[in-house]
Each structure stands twice: as C-alpha cells, then as structure tokens.
Design a protein around this nucleic acid. Structure first.
Lengths: 138, 138
DNA sequence: AGTACTTATGCAACTTTATTGCATGAAATA
DNA sequence: TATTTCATGCAATAAAGTTGCATAAGTACT
C-alpha cells in the first residue's frame, strides 16, 4: 500500500512513524487472515521479537487491530474494519476459523446478531465460526 | 457432589478413577464459571502442574470439558453441558465474559443462532458476549 | 486376594510465549 | 538544529505448556 496512506493511519492514531510499524501495518492490510505473533516473528526477523510485541500492543491500544479469541492458546490479531476507537472496540463482524488450514478470517459482511440477557449488561459480542473456509472447500 | 456420581462420569468416559481427576471434576461441577489452568494450580497445589495439565487434556479429549476461546491468551475450560462426545464437541450455548470480575460463564439457556455463509462449510459456532455479569450488576 | 498389565503421577528438564529494565537511537515539536 | 519524547534492541526474567522417564497406582483376570 502506498506509503503516505500507511503514515496517515499511524498519525491518525497518534503513533510515531517508524519502519517497524509501517511494515507491520502494511502486512496486516495485505493479509486476508488474522495474524499470529509467530507469523510476525517469522515474517519480520529483521526486528526484535520485543519490538514486534510492542508494535502489536500499540496497535491494539490505539484501535488499529483487535485481538481475536481463540481456544488454541495463543493470540491472533486482525485489522479493525469498522469504526474503532481506543476506548471501545466494536467488532460486530464474524470471525471464521478454518479447521483445515487453521487460518482465521474476518467476515465483515456478516454481522453478529443482537442478544439480550436479563440481568446482564452487554458491551459487545463475538461470533466465531469453525468450519472449512472457501479456499479449502474448492 | 457424591463420590459415586463423579466416579460414574469418569467411567462413562473411559477414564481411570484417580484422586486428582475426582477433585478436578468436582471442582468443575461446583464452579459456575469457566476455569483457567492457573486457577486449577492454585486450587490444587497438592498435585503437580503437569498432572493438572494432563487431567485437563484427558477431560477435553473425552468430552467432559471444553476449552473456551478467550483473547486474553490463556485457555479456560468449562463443563460440557449438552451431549458432547469425544469426536464432536457441539456447544451451541453462549459464553459470557464479565469485563469487571473477569469470570467467564456458560449460559446454556441461550443458544447460538444458525449462520450460513456461501462457500463455507460450518462445523460449529461460538458466541462470546462481553459485558457485566449478573452478580457484578447487582 | 494376588498377579500381570496398563495407565497416571511426580520430578526434572526444556520449549514456547510474553514481559520488563535500561541504554541507545530515532522521531516529533518548536 | 536543539530538545524532548518515545521506539528499539539487548539481556534477563517470567509465565505457560510440553516431554521423557522412573515410580506408583488403577484395572482386569484368575
């Protein structure tokens, strides 16, 4: 993606423009899937592991990416598609996890149904679908 | 819970009856919330960490408990309420995570809506609701 | 009950994942 | 371009989970 666009995104989120952040941000934008910390490490060996972890933290704190629940034990992250701000991530889209290739996709076009439970205050809901994704199906 | 009931559950799932398994199983049944590995470790210091991990694995493998997706990075587990078998865990109930007390509850009475996506094969779906739970609200 | 077989446990070591402190280097602001 | 603020890399550490192996305990059979 064009450099100025990437820089603009960082500036919008009050983040300093650094090589690492530009590379990681571009990688997130290019990717169709959720990205694990390990994937970042293998992709960007030029940067220290610690730097990559801190990049992820700054991105999640500022609302550029969001963490995706996964019972496999290690975290994955995806771009925030909708209007997210640092205080309130609202991701009412569906996450799809393929049981064949292991990839996690965001499906922004599918929205999470509204649920209400008496006695409970609902902040946001996440819908994770497990199955076989489009590319593994074909 | 009565000892014979606990033993019966283990036998049903082809698991040997041991002190550790009886204690952990009872703990899961007593608990209203999802249980983290750390909670097990602090609760059952009498057993080795490794034994507790292996107990969790045998319970998940045999369909007694299921892991619950959580973006916090470490796994939690809850009792299987419905008809689960070792091959296919179907948990079409809702998991509620309280942003105040951090506890995760299973809400077996609330079912996950059926979703269909063209091109995708859906195996099962998980609905995680974040908010404030009943006891923190009152 | 006793024996043989199978499996669980505890210990030690190790791997993986993530965090913290600190000195240095780079980015922003004026 | 000087100054301030923040990001980076390195080292060390913490936390989470796994593996191998000897021993102990559970199960099945007679």
């Amino acid at each position: 993606m064009e450099l100025n666009v990437l820089k603009g995104i960082l500036k919008q989120h009050d983040l300093r423009i650094t090589d690492c952040r530009l590379d990681v941000l571009d990688f997130f934008i290019q990717s169709e899937h959720a990205i694990s910390t390990r994937a970042l490490e293998t992709q960007f060996g030029q940067y220290d592991r610690v730097t990559l972890y801190r990049t992820i933290n700054s991105f999640t704190d500022s609302g550029i990416i969001h963490s995706i629940p996964d019972d496999s034990g290690f975290a994955r992250y995806g771009l925030c598609h909708e209007t997210c701000n640092p205080k309130d991530h609202t991701h009412d889209h569906v996450h799809f996890k393929c049981i064949r290739c292991g990839q996690i996709e965001c499906l922004p076009d599918h929205h999470v149904p509204t649920v209400s439970i008496p006695g409970y205050t609902i902040r946001n809901t996440e819908l994770i679908i497990n199955g076989i994704c489009k590319s593994c199906n074909s």
